[in-house]
Amino acid sequence: MSEIPQDTIVLPEDRHLHYDFASGYITAHFLRNLGEGRILGTRAGANGRVYVPPRAYCERTFEPAEEWVEVGPGGTVEAATIVTAKFLGHPDPPFVIGMVRLDGAGTAITNYIELSDEQLADLDTARDVVAPGTRVKVQFKQERQGRVTDFHYVLDNG
C-alpha cells in the first residue's frame, strides 16, 4: 500500500468464499480418465473438430459433441512461454507453459512443459527448445487425483 493520507483509514478484510463447481458428465469423464492415464476429447459429428479439453457442444457449429476420442500421448507445441516472475498460486519460476496440440486433437490444451534446470539456465536457448513445432509427450504423475494437474508435458526425445 502506498502512503495513506492523514485522516483516512484503510479497512483490511480477508475474504473466503466457498464454491462447489458441478462438472457435468463430460468434464467428469475427462477428469476420471486423466486419473486412469488417458486424455480424451469430444468430437461433434463424424468429421467434426475434436475438442481437448472436451466440451459437450461444438462452439462453431453449435451441435452436440458427444463422441469420445482418445488423443495423445504425443503432441506438438503450438506456442510456449517461460515464466520468470512469481505469481500467487503458480509454481516458483522459472517454469514453462505451453499450448500443445495432442495427436488426434483439433485444439491445443495448455499445461506445463517440464525442462531441466540446465535447459532453463539460458532463456534464449530454452525458448528454442520449446519452439512451435517441438514434439512433446504427456507425462502422468504417479499419484493422480482426477485433476488437470495429473499430467504435464515433457520433451519427446525418442
Partner: peptide, 8 residues
C-alpha cells in the same frame, strides 16, 4: 475451474 485454473 476444471480445465485451466491450475494450468499456469
Amino acid at each position: 475451474p476444471f480445465y485451466e485454473r491450475e494450468s499456469g
